[in-house]
Amino acid sequence: MSQSQSLSSLELGRKTRIAGYMKNCKSSYKMKLLALGLTRGTEVLKIKTAPLGDPMEIELRGYRLSLRKDEADVVLIEKEKQ
């Protein structure tokens, strides 16, 4: 999965699927994000970012979630669909 990029780099209004987690990701983060439904293969859509670029809001599983850049950094996504 060398080509995968992190969720924080997803462009506004784009959809993609979650590919996994960074290897060095803290377990506490990962468990929380997994419980929130950010499992592999889940479709996510980036809705908005705060004026300072962080945090950001995504839509998944029919609901919306705000994530800080730190957290979004550890989530890997499939390469953006063109």
């Binding site: 983060y29 929130l36 945090p55 919306r64 705000s66 994530l67």
Partner: peptide, 10 residues
């Protein structure tokens, strides 16, 4: 260390 993960619903 980091803040607790931020989970907020607008």
């Amino acid at each position: 260390g980091h803040l607790a993960p931020f989970v907020m619903e607008l």
